[in-house]
Every structure is written in C-alpha cells, then in structure tokens.
Design a binder for these strands. Structure first.
Lengths: 199, 199, 199, 199
DNA sequence: AGCTAACCGAGACGGTACGTCCGGTCTTGTC
DNA sequence: GACAAGACCGGACGTACCGTCTCGGTTAGCT
C-alpha cells in the first residue's frame, strides 16, 4: 500500500519515464553522442521538454539514468558469477564476455557516452559506481574470495587491486583504442593477474 | 637553415597559433570543460573565430592540439626514463610522479578534457597515441627492455601488456574516481607488475 | 466577444512583438541604416534573435513591418482629408504637411530605410502599397473626386496621374536631395497640377 | 608622350580599374544587390581586395563609380536632345526611351542599386547629380529653353520644376512598382506637363 | 456524472554558442 | 613599388539547443 501524497498519477508518470529513457538509449546508440540533445530525446519520446527537466537536472543525468536503468532491469537484484571451482576458467569466461560486449557497436557507444559524462562529473561518477560498477565488482570479489578459500589466490591479496589489474588494461585499451581486443588478450590478462596474485 | 615548405607568413601565423593554444589551455584549466567555447578561446587569444576555424575543424581538435603542444614543447625530442639498474625503484619513481601529476588540479582538468575528446573521436585518439602516448610508451619500453637484458623481467614478456598492467589501473582509478591515488597504491602496482612479469 | 483563432499566447506574443517593432524604429532613427542589425534589434527589445526570425524572414521585413505598424496604430481605420471646398487650399495644406514631415530627421531616416527596402523587394513594395500608400492615396482621390463634382478638376482626369504629378516631384527631390523642400515649392506643385488638370 | 607623376604604372592601373568597374557592373546585373560583395568584385576582376580599397572607400562608392562610368564612356562629352521644333514630339521621344530603359532588366537592377546607395549617402547623391543627372538635366533644359524661345513653353516657367513634373512621376512609378510603365503613360505625362507649363 | 487539480504535450520565449561570411586592414612575395 | 593573393580581427548572419515559462487538454480520484 503506497502512501503517496497526491492521487495516483503513477501510471502516466511511469510510462513517460520509460519512454524518455528508451529514447535516450536509442539516440545514444544511433547518433554521435554530441548530437544527442534534450529536445531530440523529448521529441523521440513524444514528451514535452519540461517533463524531462522535471525529473533530471541535465542531459548528462538523463543519459546516465538511461544507461543505469538498463542494468537495473537486467538483474533481478543480485549478480552472481559462475563458480566452477576453476578460477582461471571462470575469470577467462567473464573477460571474454566483456570483450564481446565491447565489440558490440551499440554497447560501445553507450559506454563511451557514459564514460564521457562520469569523467567530468564526480556526482554522476559516484552514482555510476554505486549503482552499476559497485554491485558488479562485489559479485566478482565474491568469486575471488571463494578462490582465496580454495587456495587459488593469495589470501592477503587486495581484491580491489586484483580486479583493477584484471580489468583496467582491457578497459583502457578499449577506451583509447590503443590495441585490439581479442580473446587471447583477455586470456593473457587473466594469466598476468593470476601470476601477480596467485598463492 | 630552415627549409620550410610554405611562404613565410610564419611569424604572424605562429604568433596567433600560440595565442590560440595558450588561450585554450588557460580556459580548460579555469572553467568547466563544457564552458570552453570557440568564441571564448578566440576572445582570450585576441583572435578572430575564423582564424581558429581556418586551422582546426572543431573545438575538440583545438583542445587536443593545445594539450599535445604542451608536451611537444616540453621534450626537446626524446624522452628518457631513469635507469639506475634497479627496475622496481625506477618504475616506482615513474608511478609516483604520475600520481603527483594527477593530483594537480590543472593537470587533472586538462587530462579529463583530453580524454573526453579522444574517447569519442577515433581520429583524435590516433593523434593522441602517435604524438603523446606513443613516445612516452616507447621510452618506458626501452627501460623495460634494458630490464629484460638485466634479467629483471621475463624475456618473453609482452611489453605493451606490462605497461598496461602497470599503468591502466592507476589511470582508471583516476578517471572513475574509484579510489584514492596514493604512493602506496603506486608501489603496490609496481609490485603486482613485477610479480606478474618478473623472471 | 473575441473569436480569435489560435490559443491565447497573445499577451506574451504581443508584448514581444511591440518591443521588437519599437526597437527597430528606434534604431533606424538613431543609427545609419546599414548599422541596424537583427542582433541590435533583439538586444534593444530584450528579446532572443529567434523570436524575430520566428516572425519575419529578414531584417528588411522587420523594418518594413515596424514602419507600417506606425501608421496602423495612427489611423483608427480611415484617413480623411480636409475638404473646405477650396481644392487649391486643401492640397496646399497636405503638401506643406508633407514637406514638414520630410524635414523631421527621424521621419527622414525612417522613410529612407523604408524606400531602400521596397526598392529592392517587390513583395515588400506590394505590402507597402497595400498597407500604407494605398489607403492614403484613396483618401486623396476621394478629395479629388469631390473636386471633380465641384467642377474644380477636369471630370475625365486620371486621378492616379494627378496624384503622381502632385506628389512625385516632391518625393524625388527629397529622395535624391536634388533641391530644397520649401513651402513655396509645395505651392508651385499644387499650381502646376491644377493647371494641368483644372477644368 | 605622357608625363605622368610616377613611372608608367598607368597602364596597369587603368586596366585593373576597368576590370573592377566591369566586374561590379556584371555582378549588380546578375545577382541580388545584397549579394554583391567587395570580395566577389575582386575575385571577378582578378584583383586583390586592397586594390579596390586603395581607390574607393566603400562598396557603395565602387558601385556608384561603376554605374557612373557607364555613362561617362557613352557620351563623348556633351549630351544633346533632338530638336525638331515640335516640343511635344521631342519630349515624347525622350520619355518613351526612358520607359524602354526601365524595362530592360539589367538597367533596372543597375538603377535600383544606384538609388539604394544614393538614397542613404548624401555625398554619393551629390556625385550622382553632378556626374550623371546634372548633365542630362542640362541637356533637357537646353531643349526647354529652345521651346521657350519658340513660344511653346511659358517663358517664366521654372525649368527644374518642369523637368520634375515630367520625369518624377515616371521614376517613382518605376521605383515603387506602383503602376505599369507604358508608352501611353509616357505620353500622358508629356501632355500634363505641357498643359501645366504651356504658353 | 461532474468536478477539480495535478500533470502532461507542445512549443514560444530569452539566451548562448555555433560555424559561415564579409568588411576593411595588413603582410608577403611576384612581376 | 604597385600588385594578387589571402591571412587576419572583428562582428553580424541565421540556426540549433539550452533551460524556463505558459498554454490548453487529458486523466485521475473525490464528491
């Protein structure tokens, strides 16, 4: 039983909200990010501009919300990584999946847009970490802790550092387009990480 | 004796060019990057807008050129890293210097602006790699090769990968503000890298 | 009982419209006509440029509208000329009034601007004739018709021609500054006209 | 053997001068007058902009000079009107010739441009009167004086006024496009003038 | 069923900056 | 030493969006 203040306009609200986020996502994947404008989002969503500004303070916020909403829908609540007992194999799986994601043009544009925004806005960066990166990292760290118990990872390893050594090279290579993102590359990152933090 | 290609408009050209780049740098460090406009750069440089558009196709290009010019001036030609024979110490020095750079607010804003641009423009990214990242990486790889000869690094190590494992975690932590950039953190990255690629 | 067509944005619309036209008039009287710019009009009116471009296609159109609006306000609906029964006296009155108008620096600039525009744009010329010159000429022709009935003017005179012979010399002398505009000159034009088209 | 002041750059000077004036004339007849720019004139004439600004202070001056030059070439020195002894016939000839000129699209554009400039610049207007209108009017007045001697025109008629009554209605009708310019119209102006100023 | 008030779409508004064009000046190298 | 070529500073052009502000027209829930 909700105890909202006004009458229940929530249905309309929700519909327009979803339309806005969907429009934002569509535009980010279609166009140059520079060309994504609040007016275009509003037009695409069939919504007045004011309806957007009522909810979000800036274009950046809408776009970030749109991208974060993507993952909120995806996961029921918690993310879990596979745990076959073979850490190398499990990490390799995750890394290869990440490589594939980055190869998808839509995803590529989406994540570049997201990074453009959070690089220049500390508040959005915090929201990104809390809502998106945080839960994912937590899931990965859970897998790493399991590996520590199984003696496949140094028990005193700083798990944040482990994740960074594993993931940051891949991400940066993608962001700066400084090299090819191949399966072999993903594997060699897993290897390096295990050498650095193995038991 | 210079043997330049074009006619010698060079004096005026060069003066206005430098004024534009300096103005761009100044504005990027002073203001929100969003607020850096071509008009503001022109006004600050005491230059007509057309003089900017004659040379660069967009604000992005000016800003990137401005930042790249910084380092072009800095190095006479070649960058060399210290080589004391102690790889761990030398890398630690470089990494701690990087941490300090990122702590400088001006530098922070400059590099964020640069990354915003190159993340969304493959051509600018290529220019960045060629003019700025490339030479630096080459210098670092020279030091690593020296270490390989000295038996301090696996002789079959992929040096690009080594550099990524060393540097990308630091860079990403800075870009996403996902953790503190401390001297200890720099050292632990050197340690991890040496464990991963040591002999 | 108003039965307007559109929605009632009329208040804002009308306020900005009047501000624009007033600003245009003010600038035309103050500055060289060449120096009247859309930006200056917008600034003076406290209005965005787009608000001007939304309504008029060019600076010319704004200026013409501004000047036409002047007379639209002035006359309730119909213009009537004095009819004392003495044609010579009545025409003399009108011509001397015209001479006085042309002697007013503000009016001079306004009318020069108007003529600059309509000389080079047939559409604006048509609008000028319909809205401004037409009604005035109609009023004058009414007076001439009355004179024809009174036997003071040839009954077969082409009234348009009569008006031209009366008025064009004055206008052209003013436009080309080819001679002084005096009361005596006005009178001699009336005399010539009456000689040419008298009974 | 000319004894010019400098060395014999006079040939080049004259050639570029003619090229500039010809280009100005060509552009005025081809394009909207608004689109005639100093840059376009220079390019068309194969001349640097500075060569134009060295000689004339503004675009207006160039255009006026270009048009005035037209008639300077035309008349050897003096203009003379036909004098058959029949004033009505002679004036009719001149007026009908004027109607034909105004019907020529090139001439129309040229004269509109000229009028645009002189309406807003008293100095140019004076130059126009002195160089172009003056001599023509003088020729016409010579014919009128001959008519006065022959008793075809009131001996005390103000010849300037006669010319205005004759010519201004035609000119204004053309300038404001307020009516058709026909042969009949030209004749009726001659008739009216002769009625007004006949003996 | 009718009322009432929040909320919506639409889009005009005052602004800022865009990227282009041209005016008028200044510089360079050629003829 | 005048010239063509054209870069330069300045500033207006007309357009695109920004974020704010009405405006009527739904669309609830409440009477």
């Amino acid at each position: 039983m909700s105890k909202e203040k006004g009458p229940d306009h929530s249905r309309r609200k929700e519909r327009s909200r979803q339309a806005i986020l969907a429009a934002a996502r569509a535009l980010v994947t279609e166009e140059t990010y520079e060309k994504v404008t609040v007016e275009a989002i509003a037009a695409r969503a069939g919504v007045g501009k004011q309806t957007i500004y009522r909810r979000w303070p800036s274009k950046s916020a809408v776009v970030v919300a749109a991208l974060l909403a993507l993952s909120e829908d995806a996961d029921g609540q918690s993310v879990t990584l596979p745990d076959t007992g073979d850490l190398r194999a499990d990490l390799g799986l995750v890394m290869r999946a990440t490589v594939e994601e980055f190869a998808d043009p839509s995803f590529d544009k989406l994540i570049r847009a997201l990074n453009t925004e959070i690089a220049n806005d500390a508040a959005l960066a915090a929201e990104y970490r809390e809502k998106l990166a945080g839960p994912l990292d937590e899931a990965k760290k859970a897998r790493l802790r399991s590996a520590q118990k199984a003696g496949q990872l140094a028990s005193d390893a700083d798990l944040d550092l482990v994740l960074e050594v594993l993931y940051a090279p891949l991400f940066l290579r993608w962001l700066h387009r400084s090299g090819p993102l191949t399966t072999a590359y993903a594997d060699s990152l897993v290897d390096a990480t295990l050498r650095a933090f193995g038991p």
